[in-house]
Design a protein around this nucleic acid. Structure first.
Lengths: 207, 207, 207, 207
DNA sequence: TATGAATGAGTATTCATTCAT
DNA sequence: GATGAATGAATACTCATTCAT
């Protein structure tokens, strides 16, 4: 769950159970602080305090504040990715595949949007998060393939459609988490998103 | 264009022509700096330097750094809103109305998304931007009305659909501005967005 | 009333009625601001605003902020001095002379203690206010003379007694202005002060 | 000696021996700087430098510059109060009691008047120093009691006389510390002050 | 190892003063 | 002359990071 990443420069490699727990606590504290107070108000002290450790311990495990963000970003995207992976496998129809992926996406999102948005806002500071990039690309490629396979285009130009679909789902999911979280829980959002996806697919087939 | 807003707490009311221009320059500089360097890297000095004024002048017109962000947010949303207003008027078909609004939205967005995203990331610091909220609500209401009028529902429950459509367009537009800005210029994005909107509308009509 | 002083470095010499009024207004504004807000909160802008002039005008008449304080100090001490002068002349008994001077002193003090204290607090910044020094010395000398004349000492050492009397009256008067201003008005303070002075004098005569 | 006070808003509660010493050093440095350079010339940096700590350490223990003044004021008045308390106990004659208290007062004052005056000048900024007020009131009450007991008045109105005596001693002591510090050391000031007090007492007895 | 005291570069902010209009 | 916009050195204050205990 917290394997050392390329993006983060962890100072020491935790081997004992104790240390692993500390690292997790710090990353989790960063997530909460970012979500609650925003990036400008999130200080290293703040994170350490929420995590229940001293500032000294904080720097025993992370070389600097940014690297906690890197870890967090990786942590969040990893969670999402694992959910999506379980879908990628066998998909008879495009609708079925998209339906499954929308469902998985919403499931993975739940309580992490606030922190995720803050992280996105810090992208000026975060080193190019390779692994995250890779995952996005993977998902995108998968979507393009799906479109290529199911849309009757001669010269398929499905790069942009896949992008649009991704961002649309993204945007709706983020917005809902912030402004209509109840629709995430009662399934109504998922219902609408499927309509959005189905409609777009149908529209693309016409062309 | 820069009339004093509810959200901003201007320190001095500019009386001469000169100072009006100064205030505009500072807000514009804040927009650029936020877009280029991000919120954490944007200092008051930085903004003042880009605006070509001294730090003293900066604080002559703004009580603190945050208040420039308030002004900027209001400025940007005002610009967008004006574009959208010109559409709201006569709309024969739902498709026509939506097409016009998508087009207007993309037009207004062009070079402000970067700054806008940074601002959204600071929402913890910005006072509840009433005017912005009001504008969002207005647009949402307009969309609900459009759906109520054109969809054959007996008991119309179009609050969520309107929300979904708004956020989907929002998400796609933001994503594209950041990652595929060329599609904003060559019209291909608009084409896809219209397909998305049309498809969703068709799908909703079936229910 | 506002003749140019040694201590203050006035920038231009006011000749018209208009300018004289402006200078007075600024000095008076300084007095009020010092009394109300204290030295740390009294800015040049503040003084100018209270005086009802622009900051530009302020610096048209005074080379810097300190020089207003100099003028004010001189103004206040001048008022006190003029009161005392009218007494210095013929004094049959020591009691009579002291009684008159106490009375004059209290009369001059009334509403200026607050500002005066602030000024005293700025003595690190004010250049040695020669004229003020001179006045103090004059008063002190006069007191010493009074003691020499009326006390039956062979080798009169009345420097310290004069000092003590001066400071005692000073301290009581200041304290009363701040904490018991009503006793200044109803004469009860003067009554007590006279007792203090008389008692000290009697005590000194014994030695 | 430096227990947390009502007036001060300490930022961090010192836990180790080290930090306790640091706080003391900062308060002591503030005392020196106020006395030497005055309030306007005393900066946070200045205080930190004199204390031999970094500016960061300063703000680790005090939320802002003013709060050091609060602590200092409390510190000084506490010192004075402790001196006076040791006297209050057994007093055969009024003269004896007053003599003892004058002596104690002068002893406590020695090197703190300069700083104390600066602090008094800042009373606009300092929160109402309750504890200081309480101490003044206590001393005043004690004096009134002393007068009530020793003066042959039928309807004793000793509030003002006590006030006068307090302020007179105060004024003389302050003035001497600033202008004739040698008289504090050689005992001549104490001698004169006792004459002042004795004389006033005698004068009051006549009425 | 954990702690928290200490550091100081970096930012925010003020305010005396100048100068174009 | 009067005005107030502009200036920038000086000061207040923050927070990532180090290090003694």
């Amino acid at each position: 769950m917290n394997e050392p990443t390329g993006g983060s420069r962890r100072r020491r490699r935790p081997k004992q159970q104790r240390s692993r727990a500390t690292v997790d606590a710090i990353v989790e504290a960063a997530r909460r602080s970012l979500g609650r107070y925003g990036a400008l108000r999130t200080t290293a002290e703040q994170i350490a305090r929420i995590a229940g450790v001293s500032i000294g311990t904080f720097y025993q495990y992370f070389p600097d504040k940014i690297s906690v963000y890197s870890d967090l970003l990786d942590h969040l995207s990893g969670r999402l990715h694992r959910q999506l992976e379980s879908v990628s496998a066998p998909a008879t129809t495009a609708e079925g595949a998209l339906s499954a992926i929308v469902s998985a996406y919403l499931g993975a999102l739940r309580d992490n949007v606030a922190a995720a948005q803050q992280l996105l806002g810090q992208r000026h500071l975060l080193e190019p998060p390779e692994r995250l990039q890779a995952r996005h690309k993977q998902l995108h490629t998968w979507l393009v393939g799906l479109f290529d396979q199911h849309l009757p285009n001669d010269a398929p130009q499905n790069d942009l459609p896949a992008f649009v679909l991704l961002k649309a789902v993204h945007g709706v999911a983020h917005g809902a988490t912030l402004e209509k979280p109840e629709t995430l829980a009662d399934g109504s959002l998922e219902h609408e998103l499927l309509a959005l996806v189905r409609g777009y697919l149908a529209e693309r087939k016409k062309q």
